[in-house]
Amino acid sequence: MTARDFGTTAAPVFDRDDESRCADIAALLRESLGEDRTWPADLGPHTRLDADLALDSLETAAFAAALRQHHGDAADLLAYIADLDLDALITLTIADVARYVADRLAAGGDRSAPR
């Protein structure tokens, strides 16, 4: 399954409740890193991108590109994290990313979303 296939089956993600939204973000992250379902077994809303998954800058960029592809240019993860301080970056969770994407889409960013 490619990232694009996944996007069409999962959309629209922003009408669902938080948990489902987080599951979609987690699946997108897994896809963008090319990892299978066994990695890691307990990827959830509270999984931290830095402290738990040790995403480095390249992986973060790949994840950000996947988010933009699925949710439009308004879902700009790199712009969001560029303004965070050290502690906020260390504790950034999948739920934080899901909330950010939902906020950006609610703010009208969905105009630029593909499909």
Binding site: E35, T38, W39, A54, D56, S57, L58, E59
Partner: peptide, 23 residues
């Protein structure tokens, strides 16, 4: 280490993998 890995991959002299890869 992630910086060095990316540099080696960019130079074509190696492949970068995830330390946490499951398989």
């Amino acid at each position: 280490q992630p910086i060095n890995a990316a540099q080696v991959a960019a130079a074509g002299a190696g492949i970068r993998i995830r330390f946490d890869g499951a398989r």
